[in-house]
Amino acid sequence: MSGAGKAAAGLWALRIWAALVFVFVFAPIFFSVIFSFNSARFPTIPLESFTLHWYQTIFADPDVWDAALNSVIVSSCTAVLATALGFCTAYTDYRYRFRGQGAYLALVLLPPTIPLIIMALAMLAWLSKIGASGQIWSIVAAHTVLTAPFAMAVIRLRLNQIDPSLEAAAWNLGASQWRAMRWVILPFARPAIVSALCLTAAVSFDEFAVAWFVSGLNKTVPVLILEIVTGNIDPQVNAIGTLVFGVSITLVALAQILLAARLSRSAA
């Protein structure tokens, strides 16, 4: 086989591999979507008839609406708080050189590396100790801790691309530190900030373990799903899952598009 032929074969092998990975990841979601429109009570093949019954059921269920509202409140508050925190830590790390900077960074990036169940237990213990467990704000606090590192990473990456003279150029043209932040650093980091908002919202919207431990009666959508499936097999779950998947994938795709657009522009 010629060198070019080998390369082409390698390329095809890679493509098939990538396709298999996608199938593996997306097949369950795909079937969940299909079954959510299937009239059968149990997820079996062959499919019965098309129905919107399960969607009608969930939209009629006040529990689902409560959970959805909780999830929207939690994920949007978490997104704003985590992104604000992430921006501050990223800017501090970009702008200043200080003793213990390595430790500071390690600490900031630590939460996602802790197993979720440990994190959730610790959160529950701590929040109930200070009398703040079982409320919707408990979930916001816990999710903020969990997602801020993602926001920090995305924004820090963007700040890496800034011309180090840019901020000083703003001062030199009459901007105070705060105004340079407002008119130079923030506009420069804006794509990353929006993308961090989407990402942290998506992570918080999907997160189950921590939410389950600290939520109390304020269930978010993932917690509700667990309650439904522990009771019985109910195709409602497929309908809810489809909607949750839709929201999350939209947010993540938005984040990706924003980042990619920015990168290709700076590469040009």
């Binding site: 000083a168 150029a169 703003a170 030199n172 506009p187 420069f188 700076s266």
Partner: peptide, 14 residues
Amino acid sequence: DTPLVWQSLALFPF
């Protein structure tokens, strides 16, 4: 009021 023309120019890309 001592504006500087930077080596990198430091134009605001946005």
